[in-house]
């Protein structure tokens, strides 16, 4: 008969396990310490980099985006930090200013476009109101600032409609999936019709007409009943309106 393990052996085993555990924790701790140090180093290098390249970051939109990406990688949000080191950049101010201007443009145009503006029109209007001596802004800057605005509730949203168009919605309310699909067909033409929806989306007439009614009642589309088939026009996609 095999001798059962004595109490001594059990204790020894337990002790060993504990030692392993301790060692493990020690190693883990060391690793964390190293990682922490690395992160700290990266952070300070990033800060150094930021202050060395302050003017480039502010001037060049591409540089700004790359810098943003680096910051995001280590969990620093230079927009949120307006205190301490990051304030030297004033990057927060840059985006706050841009956000305010976005709100202004959206409000000023909401009457004519029902609160829906394409990113390209928004950018053109922002550039105009900022004057030609200010920094250049690119779509990424606008999206970055517009996303910040969404914290104020659902009154501000960045919509990507299928087909690559990006729209900024400045009216409260949720667009349904069907309404978004309707919007996606409007750029270029400026309007949609019931047959277009049936053809392109393979929708039934009932589904298509209820989606059309919805975009009209949201104030996004205008009805033109003088064409052979009623057309539903979107000021947001009408060249004359965009340029006005």
């Amino acid at each position: 008969m095999r001798r059962r393990a004595g109490i001594g052996a059990i204790q020894k085993q337990k002790l060993e396990q504990e030692r392993y555990k301790d060692k493990g924790t020690e190693l883990q701790g060391k690793e964390l310490e190293v990682l922490g140090k690395q992160l700290e180093e990266f952070r300070s290098k990033l800060e150094e980099f930021a202050s060395n390249h302050k003017s480039e970051i502010k001037r060049s939109p591409v540089f700004r985006r790359q810098f943003q990406e680096m910051c995001a990688a280590i969990g620093v949000d230079p927009l949120a930090s307006n205190k301490g080191f990051w304030s030297v950049l004033n990057l927060g101010d840059f985006y706050y200013e841009l956000s305010v201007q976005i709100v202004e443009v959206c409000l000023a145009t909401s009457e004519k476009n029902g609160g829906l503006i394409s990113l390209s029109e928004l950018r053109a209007k922002l550039m105009k109101s900022r004057g030609r001596f200010s920094q250049e802004i690119i779509n990424d800057d606008i999206l970055c600032a517009a996303k910040k605005l969404s914290i104020f509730g659902n009154g501000f949203k960045v919509l990507s409609v299928p087909g690559g168009q990006t729209l900024i919605q400045s009216i409260p309310g949720e667009l349904s999936v069907d309404q978004t699909s309707v919007l996606a067909l409007a750029p270029g033409r400026g309007y949609v019709t019931l047959p277009i929806l049936q053809e392109e989306l393979k929708w039934t007439a009932v589904r298509a007409s209820s989606a059309l009614e919805a975009v009209v009642s949201e104030g996004l589309a205008w009805l033109d009943s003088q064409s052979p088939t009623p057309q539903y026009w979107f000021p947001s996609f009408f060249i004359g309106c965009m340029d006005s």
Binding site: K112, V216, W222, Q226, Q231, G240, C241
Partner: peptide
């Protein structure tokens, strides 16, 4: 002429009351 003058639905009385007001 304002931009609306070449916007076809400008010539149809709009069914949505809010839009009609703007029109």
């Amino acid at each position: 002429w304002p931009w609306q003058y070449s916007f076809p639905p400008f010539f149809t009385v709009q069914p949505n009351l809010q839009t009609r007001k703007i029109q």
